[in-house]
C-alpha cells in the first residue's frame, strides 16, 4: 500500500500476514479460521492502541498525508450550487486559494479555502497551497462581497504558510495578511473557520479570524512549521519531531489554550481513510455553529469575535512594577 506512515508499520505488517494466510487457505484444504480470527482480533487491538495514542509528530504526518482531503473535496461533499469566483481584480488569480458562492443545506454562503494540489502538476499550479498576496486579496474581495449580500462565510484552512518568495514580498505579502486580519475582525456576517490540514502561521490566520474556529483532530495549527522552529531554536531542522512535541500544535492542545472552539473528530487513522464520513463529522459541527451565529446581528457578531481573540494570551498581572529606572 502506498503512503503508509512510519507509525503504521506494525499494522501494515500484520495486515500483510493476514492476507497471506487467507491466500494460503484458499488454495489448500486446511482450516486456519481460528488463527485468522485471532490475528484479526490482534489487528483490531493494535489499531486501537496505535490510533488512540498518536503523538503530535504522528499527527503532523497525518496532516501532511498526500491523500489528505482538501478544501475542494469538502466543498464537493458539503455544498451544492458551488460557483467558483476568480481573481483579486488587481493583479492575478492565485489558485492556492479557492473561493466562491454556494448553498449549504439551502442557505446561501460564501466558501473560501487554501487549496493544495493532488499531484505534482496540480501542486505546481496551486503553488502547494501556499498563497501569494493576490490570493489573500481575492479572499478578502469575496468576504466583502459576502458581507454586502449578508451571506455567512466559511473558511477552510490548509496551508504550510504564505509563500515566502520575491514576488510575494514585492506585492506586499505582509500587508495582504494584515489587511485580512483587520477586515475580518469587522465583518458583519458570521464567519466559521475550520483547520482541515496544516495551519501554517500567518498564512493560515489570514483566513482564520472567525466567530468560531474549529480544527480536525489530526490537523495542526502553529506559528511556524516544526522544521522551522527546530532550525531557529536549535539550529537543526532534523529536530522537527522534538519541536512538534513541545510546541502545542495539535487540536487537543489548542482547545486547551482556547485558540480553537471545537475539535472535530476524525475517522480512525485519519480523514483520508473515509472522506465521505469525515465530511459528515464536519457537517454536524458546521451546522451547529451557523445556527448559533445566524440570530446575532452585526454588532453582536463583531463583539463576539473581538471577545474571542481578546481572551487569548497568557500573562501575569503582578503587583509590583518592573521598571528600568
Amino acid at each position: 500500500m502506498a503512503y503508509e506512515l512510519e507509525f503504521e508499520k506494525p499494522l501494515v505488517e500484520l495486515r500483510k500476514k493476514i492476507s497471506e494466510l487467507k491466500e494460503f487457505t484458499k488454495h489448500r484444504d486446511v482450516d486456519f479460521s481460528d488463527e485468522l480470527n485471532k490475528l484479526e482480533a490482534r489487528l483490531e487491538k493494535l489499531e486501537n492502541d496505535i490510533y488512540a495514542n498518536l503523538s503530535p509528530w504522528d499527527r503532523v504526518q497525518i496532516a501532511r498525508h498526500p491523500n489528505r482531503p482538501t478544501t475542494l473535496d469538502y466543498i464537493d461533499r458539503l455544498f451544492t450550487n458551488f460557483f467558483e469566483c476568480h481573481g483579486d481584480r488587481c493583479f492575478g488569480d492565485d489558485e492556492a486559494i479557492v473561493g466562491g458562492i454556494a448553498k449549504y443545506h439551502g442557505l446561501p454562503v460564501t466558501v473560501i479555502g487554501h487549496q493544495r494540489g493532488k499531484d505534482t502538476k496540480e501542486n505546481i499550479r496551486r503553488n502547494f497551497g501556499m498563497p501569494h498576496p493576490e490570493g489573500y486579496r481575492k479572499a478578502l474581495r469575496l468576504m466583502k462581497q459576502a458581507e454586502k449580500f449578508g451571506r455567512p462565510i466559511i473558511c477552510f484552512i490548509d496551508t504550510k504558510g504564505a509563500y515566502p518568495g520575491k514576488a510575494a514580498e514585492e506585492r506586499g505579502q505582509s500587508e495582504a495578511i494584515a489587511r485580512n486580519l483587520f477586515e475580518m475582525a469587522g465583518l458583519t456576517v458570521p464567519v466559521v473557520c475550520i483547520v482541515i490540514g496544516e495551519g501554517g502561521s500567518g498564512g493560515a490566520l489570514a483566513l482564520g479570524v472567525g466567530n468560531y474556529v474549529h480544527m480536525l483532530e489530526n490537523s495542526t495549527y502553529s506559528v511556524i512549521s516544526p522544521e522551522g522552529a527546530a532550525a531557529i531554536l536549535w539550529k537543526d531542522a532534523s529536530l522537527a519531531k522534538k519541536a512538534a512535541e513541545t510546541m502545542k500544535i495539535t487540536a487537543k492542545d489548542l482547545k486547551q489554550l482556547g485558540v480553537i472552539d471545537e475539535m472535530i473528530p476524525e475517522v480512525r487513522g485519519g480523514a483520508h481513510r473515509n472522506v465521505d464520513e469525515q465530511a459528515k463529522y464536519i457537517d454536524d459541527v458546521l451546522q451547529r455553529s451557523l445556527r448559533e451565529l445566524l440570530p446575532l446581528n452585526a454588532e453582536q457578531l463583531i463583539a463576539q469575535r473581538y471577545e474571542k481573540y481578546k481572551k487569548i494570551g497568557d500573562f501575569i498581572e503582578s503587583q509590583q512594577h518592573v521598571s528600568v529606572t
Binding site: I101, K103, G106, L107, P108, F149, R291
Partner: peptide
C-alpha cells in the same frame, strides 16, 4: 444563490 434565504430551518 442571491435570491434564496435558505429554508425556514435556518
Amino acid at each position: 444563490i442571491h435570491q434564496s434565504r435558505g429554508g425556514d430551518e435556518w
